[in-house]
């Protein structure tokens, strides 16, 4: 039972986030979202930007490990 707690929490969290995400995209079609820059007014632009930025940050960070990561006692040596 205990092991399933986090898993079931994760599952329901994912479900609700996806529903909210879908609603936010649908909402974009119901009104004209004014932005400072016209290209940002494309349907779902902030959503797309958020998703891509997040993946980019994590992937680039992961890649940077090659150059920036050292052993935990690096400075003690």
């Amino acid at each position: 039972m205990k092991k399933n707690d986090l898993k079931s929490m994760g599952k329901s969290f994912t479900k609700y986030i996806l529903i909210i995400g879908a609603l936010l995209i649908l909402l974009d079609f119901t009104f004209h979202r004014h932005e400072y820059f016209s290209f940002a007014e494309i349907y779902g632009f902030p959503a797309f930007f958020g998703f891509v930025s997040f993946v980019f940050i994590v992937m680039l960070g992961k890649w940077l490990r090659k150059f920036l990561m050292r052993k935990e006692d690096y400075y003690d040596q």
Binding site: I17, L18, I20, G21, L24, I25, L27, D28, R33, E35, A40, G44, F45, P46, A47, F48, F49, G50, F51, V52, S53, F54, V55, V58
Partner: peptide, 14 residues
């Protein structure tokens, strides 16, 4: 809406 889209879809990316 703009801010929520950014944040929620970043969470979905996670």
């Amino acid at each position: 809406i703009s801010q929520l889209q950014l944040l929620v879809f970043a969470i979905i990316a996670f």
